[in-house]
């Protein structure tokens, strides 16, 4: 889980072009949107692309988005759960 969260932080920075942010500056439980990293709706779409490209996961229900993309930890949990389901 720690490795996955660390990978996710680097992937988020690369995918969203967050050139002023370092992976260690993103907290595991820091909100990604609004008050936290300040991501916007286009970034949310890019996160969906990231899940699909890096983890072959398609977000089947758009309403799950806010829950899945709340923090790096919730993203990692979603990926783990998805991988366990498909194991």
């Amino acid at each position: 889980m720690v490795k996955l969260m660390s990978d996710l932080k680097s992937q988020i920075i690369a995918q969203l072009n967050l050139q002023d942010v370092k992976p260690e500056e993103i907290g595991d439980d820091q909100p990604l949107f609004v008050d936290g990293l300040g991501l916007d709706s286009i970034d949310a779409l890019e996160l969906i692309v990231l899940l699909q490209q890096e983890y072959k996961i398609k977000l089947s229900n758009a309403e799950d988005g806010p829950k899945v993309f709340k923090t790096v930890r919730t993203m990692a949990e979603y990926i783990k759960a998805h991988q366990a389901q498909n194991a």
Partner: peptide, 10 residues
């Protein structure tokens, strides 16, 4: 060709 980029599309 791979996956359309929303960030570029805008």
């Amino acid at each position: 060709r791979v996956m359309a980029s929303p960030a570029l599309f805008v």
